[in-house]
């Protein structure tokens, strides 16, 4: 008998020992608008721990949306490193990014981005269609997510039959339905009146209280002031990182 050597076992490098949900180093994003290069991000270094609630503020055009889109894996950085939950996602293939968006992230947009002429429940179900959740579980999970944002009973309503605040609730339910580790919200109340904005912010705080990590862009100073941590951006960089209150989830 011939001795067969045992198969060589691949030794995986240990994952970065870190509780950071987001870790970026020198993140840049340059848009090519014709002949001119627009440097929307000029080296962002960021570390956001699990359970944080971070507000991002800054003048228009300073790169807040660009940062959010990059953190949300909707866009790839031009340079730098982005580690999401200890995994370098800055060089993933489009398919791998899709999986990250589906499993790990929830995104809430200023203009809701619901599918038109599609019922609330079907909108919420959408991420599950592309997930590994068994088909039989999809409906109940979507229903539970709608209930979580206070829209039980409105499953059949289409976006045009819902108010702006309700539409944003549907969008939040859609972001939450996959139980993501991180919720990114780019001006989620930008299109809403002040009363509705308060309700939506309360809803987000409620989710945060349940342990969800949230990064949110806002133009509202008051909202920014309430956040545990505030990032101030200018010209594609974070110019100030202000911890305003102790982390609610962190040990004292």
């Amino acid at each position: 008998m011939v001795d067969v050597p045992p198969p060589r076992r691949r030794i995986e490098p240990p994952a970065t020992v870190s509780t950071a949900v987001i870790l970026t180093r020198g993140l840049t994003r340059t848009y090519q608008a014709g002949d001119v290069a627009v440097h929307a991000l000029r080296g962002v270094d960021l570390r956001i721990e699990a359970g944080e609630y971070v507000a991002v503020m800054g003048p228009s055009g300073c790169g807040k949306s660009t940062l959010m889109n990059t953190l949300g894996c909707l866009d790839s950085p031009t340079g730098g490193v982005y580690e999401l939950l200890g995994r370098d996602v800055s060089r993933l293939t489009p398919d791998e990014l899709a999986t990250v968006r589906n499993r790990t992230l929830g995104f809430v947009f200023q203009d809701f981005n619901l599918l038109p002429r599609t019922s609330a429940i079907e909108n919420v179900e959408l991420p599950l269609l592309y997930s590994s959740v068994p088909p039989a579980e999809q409906r109940p999970r979507a229903r539970a997510a709608l209930a979580r944002v206070g829209l039980a009973g409105r499953e059949a309503s289409t976006p045009t039959q819902l108010s702006g605040g309700q539409q944003q609730r549907v969008a939040i339910a859609r972001a939450l339905v996959t139980e993501p580790a991180l919720l990114l919200a780019d001006e989620p109340t930008g299109n809403l009146d002040s009363q509705t904005s308060i309700e939506i912010l309360a809803l987000l705080r409620e989710q945060h209280a349940r342990g969800l990590t949230i990064v949110m862009v806002t133009h509202d100073d008051e909202v920014g002031a309430q956040a545990e941590r505030l990032l101030l951006m200018r010209d594609g960089t974070v110019v100030e990182d202000r911890r305003q209150r102790p982390r609610s989830g962190a040990p004292a």
Binding site: D95, A98, R101, N113, L114, L115, L126, Y130
Partner: peptide, 16 residues
């Protein structure tokens, strides 16, 4: 196009 963008944002791959 927007619908496609929404689907991709929530995790649809090119092949979907």
């Amino acid at each position: 196009t927007r619908e496609i963008g929404i689907r991709m944002a929530v995790g649809a791959k090119a092949r979907h």
